[in-house]
Design a protein around this nucleic acid. Sequence first.
DNA 1: ATGAAAGCGCTAACAA
DNA 2: TTGTTAGCGCTTTCAT
Lengths: 340, 340
Amino acid sequence: MVRRKLVAQRAGVSEATVSRVLNGVDGVKEGTRKKVLEAVEALGYRPNAIAQSFVKGRSGNIGVIVPHIPQVHLFSTHYFGEISSGIAVGLSKYRLHMLLLFYQSDDPDQVLHAFESRKIDGCIVLGANEKTRGIESLKAAGCPVCFVSHRDEDPLTSYVDTDNVNGAYLATSHLIKSGHERIAFLNGPLMYTNSVDRLEGFQKALADAGMHFDPALVLQGNYSRTSGYAAVAHFLAINPIPTSVFVANDRMAAGFILGLREVGLRVGQHVSLVGYDDADIATITDPPLTTIRVPFFEMGKRAASILVEKIGRGESSQGEKIRLPAELIVRESSQSVRQL
Amino acid sequence: MVRRKLVAQRAGVSEATVSRVLNGVDGVKEGTRKKVLEAVEALGYRPNAIAQSFVKGRSGNIGVIVPHIPQVHLFSTHYFGEISSGIAVGLSKYRLHMLLLFYQSDDPDQVLHAFESRKIDGCIVLGANEKTRGIESLKAAGCPVCFVSHRDEDPLTSYVDTDNVNGAYLATSHLIKSGHERIAFLNGPLMYTNSVDRLEGFQKALADAGMHFDPALVLQGNYSRTSGYAAVAHFLAINPIPTSVFVANDRMAAGFILGLREVGLRVGQHVSLVGYDDADIATITDPPLTTIRVPFFEMGKRAASILVEKIGRGESSQGEKIRLPAELIVRESSQSVRQL
DNA sequence: ATGAAAGCGCTAACAA
DNA sequence: TTGTTAGCGCTTTCAT
């Protein structure tokens, strides 16, 4: 392998000068610079990133923490693909890389170990909730953390979320404006801040429209398609059956549609439905979902820059909290409806 | 940060002994070992992985290369989630990590650079095809490579694939056994070895059943749902319209179902359909898809071990080629059918 | 403008 | 059984 020494010899300069040229340190004579660059080119030299990391005391890797398999229903391809691409783009500016880590029940300290052993300089956490294990010890160890799609109000940690309160508000208001007076809400578990916020937005929309909030109209799922399917039974048990439903994510919405179809009820015809996420599944369902678009790519990109900046500012610097706007996408699942 | 020196001091031994204990080198007196371990524990010492990498000349990271966004339709959550989890599990035995890299048109040499700068010791490539850029230079640079779901017959490279010939054979035979005599085949681009193999299996099944292979019954998609949708027009233009279709992946199958529905044709009733992958979408479609299950998790796991072993064996060692079996999953999309 | 030299924290060969 | 020591390839001060 070609090392710096060889380049220095070929260019007839010292190794330090080679480094100066490659690191863009100024105060190098143009002629010298050129000689070095030529030698680098001719030899195909590429600095050893590990050695660089070693001396700098930074791995140059950001951990991207995702839930382990059993929770994979939390995110769609769209979700993960968009966020991770966003992160990659965000990190590339800084020549940083993504180390993919799963938080697994059989080894909850995996991420902590990765930080303590300096394999990662900080991390971006996807799909977290209140109960996500190991995050506290990670923060205690001084690991810079940025959550995506999860609020953590600890002043030291950062997050990039969407405005879920407003997203839910838009979804609910859309149904209200379409003339619905009985709107059910199929939410996810309240351990997710997303769920808490969406509930708040739902209630706010009702309140602003002068409508009564009836807890009996709130159903509970776990963001999986199956749980959406299962919720249909509870929905039908409500008396009278609501004419519309706001479902807290598109996967549950897909299950919900299926469940209704089995009892002969068609979404967009008998029942209006609004989902959330604008995941890829939203255009596959029949009918396609009216939903709330979440800018996942942008979120990933922002998370990357926020985290990198935080790492630069040092251990005890404040975290940054960002909420990007959500947007209503109207499709056929929320067509106006005849009474049941 | 706690360093080895401090541990050595506290344990009253030399730094070398600390390393010996931590690396499980034997020939250390039990009492000494204990003292060291206690000091490690008390101080919360964790060896600096970068320094270890540095002296060993290995990053301890495996690149996981995935297609960039525009090609994201190539894989579903299921695909990526399963494979990457498999890789993670496979690598954890060796205490290796996954560096996530995208092959992007704007920087085709990104992966090469990662290898040359020693950020990765080898890589696992997902979603590759014949035209995937940059792989040749990567191999030329001596980077150990293992493909998943793609054959590369270069003796030095490895792959883990499924037996796509047999998979397609099973799918087609299933339709033949159900009494279909005109079976269309919606394939993906032939730049994917998967497509080539599935075509071969399709033809073989026909031949074994004494049926004629009619090229006019072969349609072309690109594995996206949209292309499946678009293929319906061509399918309907075939005269007479085939009674069944084998679709080379589930996403196209989902689009195909939608397209047929728009002209009033229902899969599982008017047309029998078999998909491929057993992706998560296979149970979401209406009707659920009869399909070929691909053991993605297992593939990822195998790819990890194969690659690690290859790295251990050194640069010019032979690659390993593995094909795991595929399995037919019968659901409702291939119910027997009345003639059109 | 450039070179010399001191480390970064560890592994492993060599001594004792 | 344990300690001493020479690097690993680079960045960065400090001299020149």
